[in-house]
Design a protein around this nucleic acid. Structure first.
Length: 740
RNA sequence: GGACUUGUAGCUCAACGGUAGAGCGCUUCGUUUACAUCGAAGAUGUUGGGGGUUCAAAUCCCUCCAAGUCCACCA
């Protein structure tokens, strides 16, 4: 053994051995233990956050040593919106956009893009030593995953759990898709607040451009100030967009806020939407999904929202609309919803989306969490989960993007020609928007339209729904059905991850799986949905335990981000100090559920510890080699006492270690062994027994060796490479075949 | 605005009713062969502020302040 442990020389070789000897997967018929890897984006490259997958590896290795058939199944996710966003950015650099391609080509391009970048992260995971069965990797666009999404959707549709509705959703005109409530960020911002008046009723808004589709004024029925106006119609002079506006009463208006008068534009605000629906108001749209104003905006039509607002405000200020403008409060602070991806303002828009009715589906989830059929570590997430489930609304699962699983719904064309709106490119790459009737009338064939199809809009009005059928392939070949262009939200498919990752026969033995270890950020996006789908389809929870970790932060405790410039590349640290040191630094002294600090200083500290482990082994091994050359000396009582003391302390250590490990307190477990091996075993016991050992005390050396090897096993889940390397100095087989 | 969490040594965190600890960093000393990626010794704190309960409070209670996370957002 060299005096220094050099991870660079051994890690790759050891991993290769594990792989070749089939140690990455269980090979016996012991008790099964199963973990599903949270699938990283297929085109991802390792970042600091992925480092925490180490937790799953720790569990897998620990369970293996405890005599289980522990299996860790990896996979990758197509990450619909995320990936398309990345790809479109890539296109933008070349001065192109998604609209330069038809859907098929675009999809294929993204697929190739992902394929080109995939596989990389698995190589990086191998570098970190992950004991996952790579042969079993699953991609979220594998056929059987798509099939499962279809089956689930079909079942839900037939049971009335899924519906299509023209509901107000947050729409990002830049990204070109609607977003779920979880994908929305709220930011506080100062914006001018405009006070306007219709006749003598004054109201305020931060969105002057929406007044063009005002359909009513609302006051609280209890408001004495406005009682006399209720039911009346205000006459309006000199405005191009309306001549009169009704005043209605609704409890939803806050008496104390603002002027107590609210203007209603049902198509562009979720609150107005509710009021509009309740009072059966007309829905007029002034903003298109491309972010430009419609002809209802009169002189401002065709402009983008921001430009239109500026021009309108300038006109107002110049007195163009007489005394419509009352005043402007320039210092109004309010919160705005923005796209979590591009940070642009979102447009609440009424757009047809597919929704999952969660009311009934979430009940068993709440039950399972409450009764701890699924246990959360740290505990606080149980409460967070329940809070979220309590307020969880219907989930819009359709996204107006191409990259993903296309929703298996086909609309009947005959009889609905005027209700099916679409945008498509002709063969000559002419962009068209209109109804299918319009274009069939122009002599285009159905096939031509379908081939150039970009997006389809079918509004499902309650009175006259468009007939559709759920089918994975074209229902028949008479060209009478056209497929929905929306794709499933990524979380719709990944929510079914536990239902697609095991083999059929394994559902008897490995389901529910044992642990789901993942980032706390996606508790609601993913964990909640997995439990929901699993209970719905399998009537069982998908996993018994959920272990959540937090964001990896820099040495100052700040979240890593490119804009802050504090991003640490994990591979640099791995190359420099070894995978073991990197892994250990993420787990050493990290509070349960607290943020994880990744700092070079900490990695160095762990590198030193690993070298210490190595040198203890070196000491023992050197003495074992020369023991025969020395004559035995007699034990003194004092030394026997120390050996006994060591024995006792070790037993206590191991007991505590198992307790910590079994309750998912990995950091504490690791810290315990760290303390024991360095400051008790090396600093005290070896020092006390050193002279004896050097003089050939076989009993002392034997005891040291025994306790040391046991500690190697305890350390193995955290620092697999070095422990394996040392193990082979003393034994022939892999440490992974040992029992703890 | 609501809920939750957290404020302990320069930094990251332990102690959770009984004399404040560890790791990293810092200071001093120490290299005849397990390890200088080491060892020994040491400095560092009115435990966020204030009040209360108690023989005793970092720990329990109240209050204020600060930070974080999640949720809701109102014209």
């Amino acid at each position: 053994m060299d005096s220094k442990y050099q991870p660079q020389l051994v890690e790759e070789k050891i991993y290769k051995e594990w792989e070749e000897k089939g140690l990455l997967r269980p090979s016996s018929d012991k008790k099964p233990f199963t973990i599903l890897m949270p699938p990283p984006n297929a085109n991802a490259s390792l970042h600091a956050g992925h480092g925490m997958y180490t937790v799953d590896d720790v569990i897998t290795r620990y369970k293996r040593l405890r005599g289980y058939d522990s299996l860790w199944i990896p996979g990758t996710d197509h990450a619909g919106f995320e990936t398309q966003y990345v790809y479109e950015k890539f296109l933008a650099k070349q001065g192109k956009s998604r609209l330069d391609f038809d859907r098929k080509t675009f999809y294929k391009n993204v697929f190739d893009f992902v394929k080109e970048n995939s596989g990389l992260i698995y190589q990086q995971f191998r570098k970190l030593g992950f004991l996952a069965d790579w042969n079993r990797s699953i991609f979220s666009l594998d056929n059987h995953v798509i099939d499962k999404s279809f089956q689930t959707f079909k079942k839900m549709e037939s049971e009335g759990k899924v519906y299509k509705s023209d509901y107000i959703v947050n729409y990002c005109t830049h990204c070109g898709t609607s977003l779920a409530e979880l994908e929305v960020n709220h930011i506080k911002r100062k914006d001018p607040l405009y006070y306007f008046k219709y006749e003598e009723l004054i109201f305020a808004t931060v969105r002057p451009e929406t007044v063009f589709v005002d359909v009513a004024l609302v006051v609280n029925p209890k408001d004495k100030r406005y009682k006399k106006y209720i039911g009346q119609t205000m006459k309006v002079d000199g405005l191009f967009w309306l001549k009169e506006i009704p005043v209605i009463a609704d409890e939803m208006v806050d008496l104390k806020f603002g002027t107590g008068v609210v203007k209603i534009t049902p198509a562009h605000d979720s609150y107005d939407f509710e009021v509009g629906k309740k009072n059966k108001l007309i829905f007029k749209s002034v903003i298109q999904t491309n972010g430009k104003l419609t002809e209802l905006a009169g002189p401002y039509s065709g402009l983008r929202v921001k430009a239109a607002r500026e021009k309108f405000v300038a006109d107002l200020k110049s007195g163009l609309y007489k005394d419509f403008l009352v005043k402007i409060d320039e210092n109004y602070v309010h919160s705005v919803t923005v796209c979590y991806k591009c940070s642009r303002d979102l447009e609440p828009t009424v757009i047809s989306n597919w929704f999952i009715r969660v009311e009934d589906l979430k009940k068993p989830v709440i039950e399972a969490v409450k009764t701890e059929k699924v246990k959360f570590y740290p505990k606080k997430y149980k409460k967070q989960m329940l809070d979220w489930l309590g307020i969880m609304h219907d989930w819009p699962i359709s996204r107006q993007i191409v990259w993903g699983i296309r929703i298996p719904v086909w609309y009947k064309v005959t009889g609905n020609e005027s209700k099916i709106w679409l945008s498509f490119f002709t063969k000559n790459h002419e962009f068209k928007i209109g109804t299918i009737q319009q274009y069939l009338g122009e002599g285009l064939t159905f096939k031509e339209i379908e081939e150039g199809l970009q997006q389809l809009t079918v509004q499902q009005f309650e009175q006259e729904k468009v007939e559709y059928t759920v089918s994975q392939s074209r229902p028949n070949d008479d060209n009478d059905w056209i497929q929905e262009t929306d794709t499933f939200d990524t979380w719709f498919s990944s929510g079914q991850w536990p239902l697609v990752t095991l083999k059929d026969e394994e559902y008897k033995t490995r389901f529910p799986t044992d642990v789901m270890g993942t980032l706390a950020d996606i508790l609601k996006f993913w964990v909640s949905r997995m439990i929901m789908f699993s209970l719905y389809i399998k009537k069982e929870v998908p996993f018994k335990n959920v272990y959540l970790w937090s964001m990896v932060a820099d040495s100052k405790g700040l979240k890593m981000s490119k804009s802050k410039g504090n991003v640490v590349n994990p591979l640099d640290l791995v190359n420099k100090y070894g995978a073991d040191a990197f892994r250990a630094s993420l787990l050493f002294e990290t509070g349960e559920g607290g943020k994880v600090i990744l700092a070079e200083q900490k990695v160095i500290g762990m590198r030193n510890f690993i070298n210490k482990i190595w040198n203890i082994g070196r000491f023992i091994s050197m003495n074992l080699q020369i023991k025969d050359q020395r004559s035995k000396i007699k034990d003194t009582n004092k030394k026997s006492k120390i050996i006994k003391e060591l024995e006792t302390e070790y037993k206590k250590e191991k007991k505590q270690y198992l307790k910590y490990m079994d309750s998912y307190q990995f950091s504490k477990a690791f810290g315990l062994v760290y303390e024991f091996i360095w400051h008790r075993f090396a600093d005290y016991y070896i020092e006390q027994l050193k002279d004896e050992v050097i003089n050939g005390n076989i009993e002392a050396l034997g005891k040291l060796k025994e306790v040391y090897l046991e500690n190697l096993k305890m350390l193995h889940p955290f620092v697999p490479f070095v422990t394996e390397e040392i193990w082979k100095v003393f034994n022939t087989k892999s440490i992974l075949l040992e029992q703890l």
